[in-house]
Write a protein that binds this DNA or RNA. Structure first.
Length: 653
DNA sequence: GTAGGGTTAG
């Protein structure tokens, strides 16, 4: 008896694996291993100090473990995410001991993690048969969560409805179930029912979930009213609720709300920083995003994976290569660089900062590559004009067993149309057919555009006519543009009338952009203006700067510069660079220095560092014989060290 | 010994 107590005490103070094994052999030698309590303690210690397999073996040697011992071990396995072991223990337990609520709970949680719906249903059934599960709220919420995680909200609701007096946790679990099953409307409906009909007050956990549901719906108003509720209830919202709100403001583009809340928050953690940085980065406040990154680093906030990704996105959005490199270094130091999401964010950042070499280096270092990382690489190469490289990436990608999806096909067809190589288009066309993308209208439209840009209107028409009867607006628009590229505006207009007559498809702004551009290329002034008016009056589509620019271009080509100027003055919105650029170009052709100067001044107000505008204006001066003015402008390009890009166009047959 | 919550690529 005494030796048993001594050994128990020794087990209690044992801290190393070596001591434990010695102690174990002592226990076996003295026959004390038949003592269940001692064996259980010993097993638990094995879990702490030695690999789980060894611990499991020790456990299996216990002659008749009690339900309590089973539960302890079960909980251990659950803690280290060995869900399969939990379920195997549960099964073996059935022949010796009756599982209790505690056992069922961990077995069900394991089924949730493994999404093992059928196994879980069996456990549920066992619970109904052998124990009064409806008296146990803990099991109730675990069951609701189990069915939710397995995507079976009907059964989750059924379980919930079996509880006549659900408590707040049960309600919240149901709300969360709907929210995480991407059914935010139902989540809000349950929440409202809980508050209004049942008079149950939410707590911070409920509210965080409800805010997430509002975020999914991009419903700022609903989210704000929850924010109001939080303030009324508590005055100061707990961290997860504030973070959920920050995320809501980030996703709905409400920068000011986000920044205000962030500044008011007394307590902030790495998630708060991630949210506010990505809020600014994704909503155009790129400078603010960068200064927040600086502030975060300065304050010594330990960034995690998501935080690094947000910071990289901020660098990407502001094209801040230096800062991007610093974050890269930080990620490297923290050992986060090779994470697939971080690497992909790095590729995106380097590509957007015009440093494809560094992006490719990151890609090559990646241990695991998925379709997204391949896509980022491919996209970035196209973005940086590395069209042959993007083709090579496409080939590498397909030979690495990555199946390109429709987005990849659209991108690579875009690259191909820039290259202008018709044979390549034919190859990709084959890929489109084999990959089963023929019914995808975006792919179809890209293919039409690609053939048209490679010089084969005939093939473009073939693809267009070969698409199924219910062609959508994207497909129609690309064909209008295709005719436009080949100067066949009349065909484009004819086809437009066919669409209006024979289909139920309604033109959109892009449609009109395509046809108007066709008119502009062919110099069809009257038709262009007619279509513009049709867009405005018949289809009530508000023209954008680009539409106005085409009309200005049309009027400008025929020399009607005064009319073009009047047209600009009548615009509903402020004229953008496209509009003034079109006017300035026309002034060059028709030697109108006066209007040309007005246009150029507007353009340089919009972007003082755009070399193209200086060149256009200098052309106007040159045509008019004002060589001094022209020379001065060319001089200021050099002085400002502005980059000029020489235009190219290629078609290979 | 037991239940519900916040950030992550096109």
């Amino acid at each position: 008896m005494r030796s048993r107590e001594i050994v128990l005490k020794l087990v209690g103070v044992c801290t190393t694996a070596k001591l434990l094994t010695q102690l174990h052999s002592l226990i076996i030698r003295t026959g004390l291993n038949q003592d269940i309590q001692l064996a259980a303690k010993l097993t638990e210690l094995y879990f702490e100090l030695l690999p789980v397999q060894t611990a499991r073996k020790v456990f299996d040697e216990i002659p008749h473990p009690s339900a309590y011992t089973y539960n302890r071990i079960l909980q251990r396995f659950f803690g280290i995410k060995r869900y399969g072991e939990v379920l195997s223990l549960f099964s073996s337990m059935l022949s010796f001991e009756k599982p209790d609520h505690f056992t069922l709970l961990f077995a069900l949680k394991s089924c949730s993690a493994l999404k093992a719906l059928n196994f879980g249903k069996t456990i549920h059934g066992f619970g109904i048969k052998h124990g009064n599960i409806h008296s146990n709220m803990f099991l109730g919420s675990t069951l609701i969560q189990f069915y939710s995680k397995c995507g079976d909200m009907d059964d989750a609701l059924r379980v919930f409805e079996e509880y006549t007096k659900p408590d707040l946790v049960l309600w919240t679990t149901l709300v969360t179930g709907y929210e995480q099953s991407f059914k935010p409307d139902e989540a809000l409906a349950v929440f409202t029912g809980m508050m209004m009909t049942r008079g149950v007050s939410p707590d911070p956990v409920t509210l965080a979930t409800v805010v997430s549901a509002c975020t999914q719906l991009l419903n700022l108003k609903a989210g704000e009213s929850v924010h109001g509720l939080v303030i009324r209830m508590n005055n100061k919202s707990p961290l997860p609720v504030s973070n959920a709100l920050l995320n809501l403001y980030a996703k709905t583009g409400s920068i000011e709300y986000g920044v205000n809340l962030f500044r008011m928050m007394e307590e902030k953690d790495v998630i708060s920083w991630s949210c506010i940085i990505s809020c600014c980065a994704h909503n155009g406040a790129t400078d603010r995003a960068i200064s927040l990154v600086d502030e975060m680093i300065h304050k010594g906030v330990e960034p995690n994976l998501v935080c690094v990704i947000s910071a990289l996105q901020a660098c990407e959005a502001s094209c801040n290569l230096d800062k991007g490199r610093k974050i890269h270094e930080l990620a490297f130091q923290k050992g986060l660089e090779l994470d697939i999401l971080v690497s992909t964010a790095l590729i995106d950042m380097y590509m957007s900062c015009c440093s494809p070499k560094e992006a490719i280096m990151v890609f090559d270092r990646m241990l695991n590559k998925d379709d997204i990382s391949w896509f980022s690489l491919l996209c970035g190469c196209v973005q940086n004009g590395m069209l042959y490289k993007s083709m090579q990436i496409f080939c590498d990608m397909t030979s690495s067993d990555i199946q390109p999806d429709a987005t990849v096909m659209v991108k690579i067809l875009g690259a191909c149309s820039e290259l202008g190589i018709i044979q390549l288009t034919s190859c990709l066309h084959g890929y489109v057919i084999r990959g089963g993308f023929t019914s995808n209208s975006f792919v179809g439209a890209s293919l039409i555009e690609c053939y048209a840009k490679c010089g084969s209107l005939e093939e473009a028409v073939k693809v267009f006519e070969g698409l199924t009867d219910d062609k959508d607006i994207v497909v129609w628009s690309s064909m209008f543009a295709g005719y436009g590229i080949h100067g066949q505006a009349k065909e484009s207009i004819k086809l437009f009338h066919r669409m209006v007559r024979d289909s139920s498809v309604r033109p959109n702004k892009v449609t009109f952009l395509s046809i108007l551009a066709a008119c502009s290329h062919a110099g069809l002034v009257e038709e262009g203006i007619e279509l513009f008016n049709m867009m405005l009056n018949e289809y009530q589509l508000m023209p954008e700067s680009k539409h106005y620019a085409i009309i200005v271009d049309l009027l400008g080509r025929t020399g009607e510069l005064d009319k073009a100027m009047c047209f600009i003055n009548q615009m509903h919105s402020r004229a953008g660079a496209h509009v003034w650029g079109a006017l300035l170009g026309a002034c060059g052709i028709h030697q109108n220095t006066e209007i040309g100067e007005v246009a150029a001044r507007k353009l340089l107000q919009l972007d003082p560092d755009h070399a193209g505008y200086y060149i256009l204006l200098s052309n106007v001066y040159a045509v008019d014989g004002k060589w001094d003015g022209a020379a001065e402008l060319r001089g200021s390009i050099k002085e400002k060290q502005l980059k000029t890009i020489t235009g190219q166009s290629v078609v290979r047959l």
